[in-house]
Amino acid sequence: MRWYVRAMAKYPRVREQHIAVFGEGGSGKTVLVSSFFGPTQEGSYSNDLWDLVADDTGQGNRLYQNYLGMRDRARTPLTTRFAGTTYYFSVKLKGGDNAAAKKRPFDTLRLAWHDYPGEWFEESPSSEEEANRRVDTFRSLLRSDVALLLVDGQKLLDNTGEEERYLKSLLTNFRQGVLRLKDDLLGDEDRLVEFPRIWIVALSKADLFPDWDVYSFRDLVIEKATDPLDDLRSTLKDFVDTPDALSVGEDFMLLSSAKFELSAAGPEIDVTQRVGLDLILPVASMLPLERRVQWNERMEIPRKVLDTLADGAETLAEVLTGETFLDINKLVAKLPKFGPLASMAGLPALAAAAKMAGPKLREINAQAREHHDFLTATLTQFKLNLDQGVKDKLLIRSLK
């Protein structure tokens, strides 16, 4: 997740976060992003904290068109092939004219959703131009802290009783695809400092398994595909500086864009039956903050890595806890870039924000809403949603 304040102008003040989505062709990536965005554009949609807009109007119209095709005509979007796309969405906070808005550090959260073509993991490049495009597309998503690796629910169902065949093929193809990019991505660098650090294994089309919770999915993957998952983890560790600050196959998630059914009258799609998509923003914004604290507490992390890991975490913690980071920022400037003190910057305050939960979190959220502090209300709501996703057994967060 790369957060920054837009430097070209004072307004709008923007924080940006990135998420990378990987999956084979037909795994439902286009349907997912359409169902993430589409419902927020309906006339009946209501959100008292923020509005979601697509930064590119044409892109937004196409995604909403996809959603309307599912909602009104039970028609799924056309499959995209060999097209690497980044979608930019802005979460625009409400209450821009009130007193709390003038004090908040930013007004807009931008989500960059990187969709990496699944075919590029299944087939070799057909030309040097395509090979270069694959490298450039992968480089564009290196700013992501969170990556989703989709397991296609339909293919899992098609391989009932032999799920290991599909899972091994999926993970091996992905590993080999990444290995093909390794030399070009590393260049003259020994290891990459900036690289997705949290790799969530996510079941797409989870509606095909109505009796499953996320633990059912996790248990199947571990039972059937531990070795290829370990191989993928080892490969990704070879890419990164401080490889212990990397979670691969420790977090799991259920995702479904809608409920798809066949009836005597033909296909039916109930777009109101979505699973996990409301967790995308909380996962992208809150999970890196939590993981940074977890890693910081058990290992020594170089400053150059810390600066890219959940960048802007201090600002998030300030909003969540109401603490000021002026003294902490002065301390950070004096800390060494290496050594035992390098990773301690702001840790107590960050830990307080990352571990905030239960009644205290709900109290801060309620107070923020009462005082029309839309930023604090939004971030605490994201954290509440993340906790609820765990309680609802839609998400497993690594404890390491």
Score class of each variant (00 low, 15 high):
residue 8 M to W: 12
residue 17 Q to E: 10
residue 21 V to W: 00
residue 21 V to I: 15
residue 23 G to M: 05
residue 28 G to V: 03
residue 38 G to Q: 02
residue 38 G to D: 00
residue 49 L to Q: 00
residue 56 D to V: 13
residue 59 Q to D: 07
residue 63 L to G: 01
residue 69 G to K: 15
residue 70 M to G: 06
residue 71 R to W: 01
residue 74 A to G: 06
residue 76 T to H: 06
residue 76 T to I: 14
residue 77 P to K: 13
residue 83 A to L: 13
residue 83 A to F: 08
residue 90 S to P: 00
residue 95 G to I: 02
residue 98 N to P: 01
residue 101 A to C: 10
residue 113 W to S: 01
residue 114 H to E: 08
residue 120 W to S: 11
residue 122 E to C: 07
residue 133 R to D: 15
residue 136 D to V: 08
residue 141 L to Y: 13
residue 149 L to D: 00
residue 159 N to Y: 06
residue 160 T to E: 14
residue 172 T to Y: 08
residue 174 F to S: 05
residue 175 R to N: 14
residue 177 G to C: 07
residue 184 D to Q: 15
residue 187 G to V: 11
residue 188 D to Q: 15
residue 197 R to E: 09
residue 201 V to E: 02
residue 204 S to M: 08
residue 209 F to M: 09
residue 210 P to M: 15
residue 213 D to N: 14
residue 220 L to D: 04
residue 230 D to P: 00
residue 238 D to C: 15
residue 244 D to V: 07
residue 245 A to P: 02
residue 247 S to W: 11
residue 252 F to C: 05
residue 256 S to H: 01
residue 262 L to C: 06
residue 263 S to F: 07
residue 269 I to L: 12
residue 274 R to T: 10
residue 275 V to W: 00
residue 280 I to C: 03
residue 285 S to W: 09
residue 287 L to T: 11
residue 287 L to H: 11
residue 288 P to F: 02
residue 288 P to W: 04
residue 288 P to H: 04
residue 290 E to M: 14
residue 291 R to Y: 03
residue 305 V to K: 15
residue 305 V to F: 11
residue 310 A to I: 09
residue 312 G to I: 01
residue 325 F to I: 14
residue 329 N to L: 13
residue 338 F to Q: 14
residue 344 M to V: 11
residue 346 G to V: 08
residue 351 A to F: 00
residue 353 A to W: 05
residue 370 E to V: 04
residue 374 F to L: 06
residue 379 L to W: 06
residue 389 G to P: 09
residue 392 D to K: 15
residue 394 L to E: 06
residue 396 I to R: 05
